[in-house]
Amino acid sequence: MSTFIIRRLLQAILVMALMSVIVFFGVNVIGDPVHMLVSPEADQAEIEAAIRRLGLDKPIWEQYLLFVKNAMQGDLGKSFIFGEPALKLIFHHMPATLELAFSALFLAVLIGIPLGLFAGLNPDSPISKGIMAGSIFGFSLPTFWVGLMLILVFSVELGWLPSTGRGETRSVLGFETSLATVDGLKHIILPALNLALLKISLAVRLTRAGVREAMGQDYVKFARAKGLSTNRIIFVHVLKNIMIPVVTVMGLELGSLIGFSVVTEKIFAWPGMGKLLIDAILQLDRPVVVAYLMIIVVFFVLINMIVDILYSILDPRVRLQDQGA
């Protein structure tokens, strides 16, 4: 178990190092942030002062070495735009993104698994066919379009739900959250649903496929031959088996929910990390972009690790030591 964790941490460090190189030099190729920062009327002296202030006068490899040296001490640099430490900016926006991602995951599980279960148990029913057709839409409609439609229908036409911002937040365990107030909850429904749509479809398909497969297995037939009730067969024998792939895949999807909340945050003006990233990219705010991507790597590694542990708990046949890297 501990070797497993150590191996994962080493992997994470390696990926982070690679990522930092790519992004650091990549942003440099795209453009010169100085032009974004100083006013067009600025004279040569002002521009040079700005360049020196940001440390951009040194050769790029020297800038990188400095970055690595500071990163070792937990300092990922200051935002070119805000002058604040990049990490602090990201952590400030993180709770909004995390609550959105977790709400979306929660919705995906809450809606997707029961629908998938129904479709898997009644494959020939017209309702099941409707569910499956719906899931195809969930997969193929672009997020931004669905987001706009949600706003159009529920905010503009019906006026039921607000379409921008987090609404009223309250501090829980030191984090500001929309989930603790009625107004906040109203605000999070549309963006969470928008972000969840693809994952609902995924949960439906995974669950349905799992149920269909399990129902044909000998162990289900044997359970029926034992005279067990239908409920016990479905909710113990079948569900316990399909939870293995469902938890694994949905858990791993949490990473992409956090990473890809960018579009949804932009549409619903949700003040999370995604919006911060978009702004940072547009302004070539390199320290923020680098720091954001490194944080995302950490998230992915952490989530992978937790999912692996969950997997070994759910499936008695798996032990973590047995798994390869």
């Binding site: 162990y219 044997f222 088996n241 759910l314 499936d315 008695p316």
Partner: peptide, 12 residues
């Protein structure tokens, strides 16, 4: 049943 590898539920 025929195949003892398949008749018992693997996760119970």
């Amino acid at each position: 049943f025929q195949d003892p590898m398949m008749t018992l539920n693997p996760v119970l």
